[in-house]
Nucleic acid binder design. Sequence first.
DNA 1: CGTGTTTACCGCCATG
DNA 2: ATCATGGCGGTAAACA
Length: 304
Amino acid sequence: MTRTIVCLLFEGFQILDAAGPLSAFEAANTLKPNTYKLRVCAVQPGLVASSSGVAMLTEKFPAARSIDTLLVVGGGGVKHAAVCKRTRTFVQKTYNLGLRVASVCSGAYVLATAGLLDGKRATTHWSRSRDFAARFPKVKLESDRIYINDNNLWTSAGISAGIDLALALITADVGEKMARQVAQELVVYYRRPGGQSQFSPLLDEAAGGRFEGLLDYVRSHLTSNLSVDSLAERVGMSPRHFSRVFAQESGMGPAQAVQRIRAETARVMLEGRTTSLKDTAHRCGFGTTEHLRRTIQRYGSLKR
DNA sequence: CGTGTTTACCGCCATG
DNA sequence: ATCATGGCGGTAAACA
């Protein structure tokens, strides 16, 4: 199933807001062809100049039904774009069809002006947060986040955070494994949901440690048998010794680390609302939805 | 939601 | 002696 990502531009947009996510989706296509179809559009089709002066070739607004995700970029020109009536109705129409609407950086102004973010959690570029909060008091602004997902609305912080947003969408659509591969391809760090470390800090410190390769294996084989015994065999240690050394390095037992990774991945997939509970449970290695529910309650919802 | 079964974890000790 | 390793058994927790 191919998902159509439509990127909405305007005069004076920030080029990296568009280019970053587009490149991420492109990388996903390289790894798995036809995952995404990419389009860029603007109120006035044709060449649209970014704030850098470099232009992108855009088409007119496509039929809302043909869209899977609408991505509104940011940039200095957002002031005009936000008050553009055609842009506003287009964004509203897309959202009202139940489609995903996302923004990068100050693109959140367009969504907020259209009223999409009222009562929703959202984020934007840090330098705009004071102004944004004053203008849109109904929006639950969380300015310290890299990106936020609230139902079908995804907002992200400044500029390069658009790439993190794209990685989150890819995680929701395809899975964490793909997102990691894309991040590797783009040579960017794969920052985890919400921008903050949702894993234990101790587990992050294990990055680069002797179990990093093992954790990579775990992250990409969530449905495999990841018991302590089998992991110990994988790294060529006795279960006892493996468990001891792992706990020493990461501050938690191996089984607990595995469960955290499973819970975190499942949470992101569920936030994307693109997979059923049952499907998510299966793909993340939980036997039952009940097990998934309990595990997320225990680890997955730990915020900062 | 209770309940039986499995699994993880950890202290202790043996080995080399 | 010190350190890395691993086996055993009990308890507590997780799982079905």
